[in-house]
Amino acid sequence: MQLIREIGFLLQKEFTLEWRQKYAISGILLYVLSTVYIVYSSFTKLEPAIWNIQFWVIILFASVSAVVKSFQQESGQRQLYYYSLANPLAVLLSKMLYNTLLLLFLSILAYLALSLVAGNQVQQARPFALALLLGSLGFSITFTFVSAIASKASNSATLMAILSFPLIIPVLMTLIKMTAAAVTTANPAAIDLREDLLTLVAIDLLLLGAALALFPFLWRD
């Protein structure tokens, strides 16, 4: 119960902080829009299968840039202060939750922008929406934890990409497979939604479990 209350307060803190430093969020929004436009102007006409892959590549790069600051924007001393006030797991979980919401917002924005310039190719909304939700969750869990690891080193931006890209591949492959059918065909029977969902949820839970078990060893300096 205490943990949930702490997560609530910390989440509120993340929102306040983001609102005060508007340059970070507006930078990411601009990043998404410019990548979408680069993709559009280099392809002009996007086939559904390519649309799907390009969409996830945009999300991938935007997500890394959005999450990398999770554990770096605040100084070490201030973080130590948080850890002494609240359960360290609450700090991690609140950041994961905040990043999930942020990435969900980014994905919807990227989807709208890509649909505007390259046409809305999504033929089945339900599997696509589920993929966005579970994708944001999986990206957020992995990237938040990797950002906690990378923030311990000095040149963390490079490290963040090196560490997180190979780790995210299982989630990314499952997402691409799940949405590929949703984009190319209107026939709901073409997607084995249960298997893909189960795989995604299982991978997300596995990574979340590992992150929660390992964070107590990571935050202390």
Binding site: I149, P170, A202, A210, L214
Partner: peptide, 23 residues
């Protein structure tokens, strides 16, 4: 940090080798 990353990457290795190839 290396020990933490080693354990986390082993957790990510399991879906990579045993789950995704089956899809």
């Amino acid at each position: 940090v290396a020990a933490v990353y080693n354990l986390f990457s082993f957790a990510a290795l399991i879906p990579l080798i045993y789950v995704v190839p089956r899809l």
